[in-house]
């Protein structure tokens, strides 16, 4: 599903964010990307949703070469991906429901189907009763669940999560991880960047360790 071959990413002259990274993730896998901040986790995710291009190396997502992809094809790539961030990135000035509905409009989903999908996903993340609230009235864990639901609106092949539990208490972090595992069990490939080694360890899934832009260890 994701194939990286000798990928380098350098900012400016000598800030090496990724160095010779080769990584293969199969369809349906759940992978943790572990490392301290500045290790290159976010950069690696940004390459996958083509917010950035690698300085050198090749990168394929669902068989498509991102290095050679034309800019106009990028929106279609992103519709195959769900993206979740540490800071949720929810719009404060509209309800939970409208935050999700934004996606249905962007991809041109018929209104009725869109509403059904919003309801279905809010149910999945257990927030049906808060559909009409603005996000800032929700707890951090709930907000992250809304963000995850939004990430799933396009029924993505891959869910990318950048420190999804970084702003959450330990118990809520476990909740969110459980939700991500459940999503994975339904067939979505999930890639989670985290600095919380304990969380990765407890989940017992494949974990790739990054240090100073290099893959230094892999577990198991």
């Amino acid at each position: 599903m994701i194939q990286m071959y000798h990928v380098y990413k350098t900012y400016g002259k000598d800030l090496e964010a990724l160095v010779d990274v080769s990584l293969h993730i199969q369809k349906g896998e759940f992978v943790f990307l572990a490392g301290s901040s500045g290790a290159g986790k976010s950069t690696l995710l940004r390459l996958i949703f083509r917010d950035e291009l690698p300085t050198s190396g090749q990168l394929l997502v669902n068989g498509r070469n991102l290095v050679r992809m034309k800019p106009r094809a990028v929106p279609h790539l992103r519709r195959m991906l769900g993206i979740v961030f540490q800071d949720f990135k929810l719009l404060r000035d509209r309800t939970v429901e409208d935050n999700l509905a934004l996606v249905t409009r962007v991809v041109g989903m018929p209104a009725l189907e869109g509403r059904r999908r919003v309801a279905q996903l809010l149910k999945l993340v257990g927030l049906s009763h808060k559909a009409n609230m603005p996000p800032y009235k929700l707890s951090g864990g709930e907000q992250q669940r809304v963000a995850i639901a939004r990430g799933l609106m396009n029924d993505p092949l891959i869910l990318l999560a950048d420190e999804p539990t970084g702003n959450l208490d330990p118990e809520l972090a476990v909740d969110v991880t459980r939700l991500l595992l459940e999503i994975n069990s339904r067939g979505t490939t999930v890639l989670v960047a985290t600095h919380d080694l304990k969380l990765a360890e407890e989940a017992g899934r494949r974990t790739v360790f990054l240090k100073k832009g290099r893959i230094v260890e892999e577990w198991p």
């Binding site: 929106p75 719009l91 396009n154």
Partner: peptide, 11 residues
Amino acid sequence: GEIEIMRLVGA
């Protein structure tokens, strides 16, 4: 923020 989100969900 809104523009960024739209970009990320494939607009």
